[in-house]
Nucleic acid binder design. Structure first.
Lengths: 257, 257
DNA sequence: TATAAATATTGACAAAAGTCAAAATATTTA
DNA sequence: TAAATATTTTGACTTTTGTCAATATTTATA
């Protein structure tokens, strides 16, 4: 009995922590604490190392996940063995929900499969597993939860639509610049919130260039060369993982040129 | 009073027809006739010519559509004026639902926008418009309708995921072969259902090569050249819109080669 | 901390795909 | 049906991206 807690106390505290964490997900924004407590009951927390496989394509489907912290890649491996990242998921996002609604009969018979693979990209990635069957029961007649799911899936669909248009219409240079600018913007907003004073135009790549290439749909060599070109033309400076944006407006112009 | 029908009779008959048509949509598979009748009340049928614009990206959002007959392309136009097709939709599919769930507040204030454009690709395409606001009210506490939507969005998400992987990992030749084979297979199954006796390995392209290029994310010239190559190597024969598949297995092998 | 393993860079070359321009076919429409 | 318009093909050429191979650099691990 460390710290004066017994197992029951410990579990109660843990559950309360999970509940507070789930409350930050828009999926559960219209779910009461009482209902959310039921979700907590069925769910389990997992802490992952870097590069841990969460599930593989065609693994038996068990349920979906909520990301508390870290980065998860959703990917498929092609016949030729090329890996292609479909989605990079960050905290407060969920992944692996699709099979729940595609064919619930299959889930009941335990022969639903994951349509893609998932792997953690950071040390200390924390996820919550929510098993499909009890979750599905909770959804029945729970309008708020249905709406949460509907808006989550809709948001993902829109992201995918944008991604499809980008990959179909833009060259790798533009896709990479888009990535740099969006990372730059999202990091900047986090920094300014934290009033962290640091080299203002610098951010660290949160994923490897191998993964970045897989996400952009290009080879590592091509991406490496574009980085070099952007650096030689003074748009950016690269120091290891750190990227300094020297010419934000110039990069934006390259997108239209 | 033609045919001995007055307007009320006519409208009752029409509504019954719409109801029967909506029943074939999986979206409404778990909705009772009584509830579906309410949907019919708010919806309107539109018959379209070829190349009619249904809505444009950034148009004010009014609601979504069900395709009774024909083909609809969902697309965006890039900054450089290139059109890229995101989705080719056929009968018994719905499109334009995403904004309903992304931000319902916006819809109430009439400032939601369509995220992409939609155009009919066939003469006589028939669609049913379902306005967002009354539909949203019908969804409240209607579990079956929520589930229908959830499975529809899930199915679309999976299709988009596959498309993203394909565009990121395969060259245009493979993407075109994939298209040919899937069209071939789906037409074949329709033909065999209708026991239509016709040149067995032949089907007609249902869209123009311009649209096909836009869908594949390539230029018209590239697609034209690949068609020529596949013909010269005797995989297919092209006669106008008609494509004869001479070497199905060979095409499948090309996908892996 | 040395060693192994993974990640990233670079060059030379090949293949894929785009661009521009002209011409040939189809398809609409007057 | 002829003229006008839209679609498709083809060639010559350029640009982009991929492949293979060697090497450098970083990161993880014994």
């Amino acid at each position: 009995m460390k710290n004066g807690f017994n197992n029951t106390d410990r579990s109660v505290v843990l559950k309360e922590i999970i509940l507070q964490q789930l409350k930050t997900f828009s999926l559960f924004s219209k779910v009461s604490d009482k209902e959310l407590a039921k979700v907590v009951t069925i769910s389990t927390v997992k802490k992952l190392k870097k590069s841990e496989i969460i599930f593989l394509e065609k693994d038996e489907y068990t349920g979906f996940y909520c990301i508390i912290e870290g980065i998860v890649k959703i990917y498929r491996v092609t016949r030729e063995g090329k890996e292609r990242i479909i989605h990079l998921m960050y905290n407060n996002n969920t992944f692996g929900e699709v099979p729940v609604f595609e064919n619930y009969e299959k889930i009941l018979k335990n022969n639903a499969k994951y349509p893609a693979s998932a792997m953690s990209l950071c040390e200390g990635t924390r996820i919550i597993h929510i098993p499909a069957k009890p979750f599905f029961e909770l959804m029945k007649n729970h309008y708020g939860l249905c709406m949460g799911m509907l808006s989550g899936l809709s948001a993902k669909l829109r992201i995918m639509q944008t991604q499809v248009v980008d990959v179909k219409s833009q060259d790798v240079t533009r896709r990479l610049i888009n990535y740099i600018l969006s990372e730059y913007n999202s990091r900047l907003s986090i920094k300014s919130r934290q009033t962290e004073i640091f080299s203002y135009n610098t951010f660290a790549l949160s994923i490897s260039k191998i993964d970045l290439s897989s996400y952009l749909g290009a080879t590592l060599e091509t991406v490496s060369r574009i980085f070099r070109r952007l650096q030689s033309e003074n748009y950016i400076t690269i120091k290891g993982k750190n990227i300094t944006v020297n010419n934000y407006e110039g990069l934006k112009k390259l997108l239209n040129a």
